[in-house]
């Protein structure tokens, strides 16, 4: 089975964000980056399918030169090779543009499956994988929590998450696009051997111009702002001990749980 795992490089989760002077994006200098969380689960699922059934896992990403670092991490986890579409920031913010660029490489590679995360940690539109499926004319399923495939079978059985602890079990034929939910598996950490091997693995760069994707974007992020707060919580200051004492008073008199 040949699987493409689409991953995105995003700032680490713990980051305290600052907005750039133009107000159009975050200040990216000096941030550290990681693979988007849902995409890590998608890659792990791809690796498990390969380990069980054989085949190849190809990483596909879109971003700046700096994305090589997270691509190498994906290769260290066990992907066989990578394709990085080099794109400027404004080419990465419109999900439609991203999907069309990914489409060019998926068509060339002709995998059996494309796996990616349900959503990105940065923009969180939850669109790219499904847009890609429709552009390919392939079936898809989103928010996937389980993938079952019997070797040789023409269809996959998957479970997708619904609200309130329910799952929907569906089947669909190959080739297909699945968007993976976090928690589908327990992700691995790269081994030293994997890290060493990753340095030598093929990472092919594709220039934006080579994708032939025009600037026909559908939506644009005009600016970033700090969210407006309707309700302000009362921040209790002081040393941990003082703050605890104040809070206990409130738990006693106001919340009435002590």
């Amino acid at each position: 089975m040949k699987i493409i795992a689409c991953i995105k490089q995003v700032p680490e989760k713990d980051t305290r964000f600052e907005i750039n002077p133009q107000g159009t994006w975050i200040q990216e200098q000096e941030l550290t980056f990681e693979i988007n969380e849902c995409d890590v689960y998608a890659l792990e699922e791809a690796l498990r399918l390969k380990e069980k059934h054989g085949g190849e896992v190809v990483l596909l990403s879109l971003g700046g030169e700096s994305a090589e670092k997270t691509m190498r991490r994906g290769l260290a986890l066990g992907a066989d090779r990578g394709i990085l579409i080099l794109a400027a920031r404004d080419q990465t913010t419109d999900p439609f543009t991203v999907a069309r660029a990914l489409l060019t490489q998926v068509r060339l590679e002709q995998p059996d499956l494309v796996l990616t995360g349900v959503r990105s940690d940065d923009q969180a539109f939850s669109q790219t994988g499904t847009l890609l499926a429709e552009l390919l004319g392939w079936p898809h399923a989103t928010i996937v929590m389980k993938i079952d495939w019997e070797a040789g079978a023409g269809r996959l059985t998957i479970q997708r998450e619904l609200e309130a602890g329910l799952l929907e079990e569906v089947s669909l034929p190959f080739p297909a696009v699945l968007t993976i939910q976090q928690g589908i598996n327990q992700v691995r950490y790269p081994s030293l051997k994997g890290i060493m091997a990753a340095r030598k693995k093929e990472l092919r760069r594709v220039n934006w111009a080579a994708t032939g994707v025009s600037g026909d974007r559908k939506i644009a992020i005009e600016k970033l702002v700090f969210p407006k707060s309707d309700k302000k919580s009362e921040i209790i200051g002081g040393t941990p001990r003082d703050a605890a004492a104040t809070l206990v008073e409130k738990m006693k008199k106001e919340m009435k749980i002590l």
Partner: peptide, 18 residues
């Protein structure tokens, strides 16, 4: 339109080009 981005720590103002 406003939507949450970056783990709801920031908000983005988004408009249609198409």
């Amino acid at each position: 339109f406003t939507k949450s981005v970056f783990h709801d720590k920031l908000a983005a103002e988004v408009s249609f080009c198409a």
